[in-house]
Simulated assay, not measured.
Amino acid sequence: MNIFILNIALAVAWAALTGDITLTGLAVGFALGSAALFVTKPLFPGCDRYFKRVWRWVKLGVLFLYELVVSSVQVVWDVLTPAHKARPGIISVPLEADDEMEILLVTNLISLTPGTLSLDVTEDRKTLYIHAMFADDPDAIRAQIRTGMARWVREAME
């Protein structure tokens, strides 16, 4: 049985029962459905995998929001202060992801982060080219992407 579909059905049922068929009502129903499914985990084989995956997606979202705030502050600080520390450059980043969805998510998250922009992925899907606003240390940026965004996406997609 697909636990995610069951959780969606519980969310819709909650929204219908409360008469609050809005995004907020569905979100509350989804959270309550998740709690109910968590409590009844022994009844649903394979439920542990669902909750691990949900946790990884939540972790990806929170860590991305953290990166978003940190990079936004860095860009704003550079724009507002008289001494500009930006040293833009194009950097090649080796990719470990094989799945197209993983590559798509990594490139989009990088592009959404202020100060970086995904430019291209090679045809063999092994290298990503990015433009970075602060490209003083390309190796540090590669390591940050590999151990940060790319790893979080890979974990979420498992």
Rank of each mutant, 00 (worst) to 15 (best):
Thr122Leu: 08
Val69Phe: 02
Leu128Asp: 00
Asp48Leu: 13
Pro45Glu: 06
Val62Gly: 04
Asp78Cys: 12
Pro42Lys: 08
Thr116Arg: 05
Leu32Val: 14
Ser72Leu: 02
Ile21Trp: 12
Leu95His: 04
Trp57His: 14
Gln144Thr: 05
Lys85Ala: 12
Leu119Trp: 07
His84Ala: 08
Ile90Ala: 11
Tyr50Cys: 04
Lys85Phe: 12
Gly148Ile: 07
Val54Arg: 11
Thr18Ile: 04
Ala31Leu: 15
Pro42Val: 03
Gly33Thr: 10
Val39Asp: 00
Arg53Cys: 12
Val58Thr: 06
Asp139Gly: 02
Ile21Val: 15
Lys85Trp: 11
Lys59Gln: 06
Thr24Arg: 12
Asp20Met: 06
Arg125Ser: 05
Asp136Glu: 15
Asp120Phe: 13
Thr18Ala: 03
Leu43Glu: 02
Ala36Gln: 02
Asp98His: 14
Glu96Lys: 15
Val58Phe: 02
Ile103His: 07
Gly46Lys: 13
Gln144Glu: 07
Trp57Cys: 12
Ala97Ile: 09
Leu112Val: 07
Leu128Ile: 01
Leu104Asp: 03
Ala86Met: 15
Val54Thr: 14
Asp98Ser: 15
Ser92Asn: 10
Met101Phe: 11
Asp78Gly: 09
Pro45Ser: 11
Leu119Cys: 12
Ser71Phe: 07
Pro42Thr: 04
Ile91Gln: 01
Ser72Glu: 01
Glu100Met: 13
Ile141Ser: 01
Thr147Gln: 08
Leu65Trp: 10
Lys52Thr: 13
Asp78Ala: 15
Leu37Phe: 08
Leu26Cys: 08
Val106Phe: 04
Phe44Pro: 01
Trp77Asp: 06
Gly19Cys: 04
Leu119Arg: 10
His84Asp: 08
Leu128Ala: 00
Val54Gly: 08
Leu119Glu: 12
Ala31Tyr: 07
Phe30Asp: 01
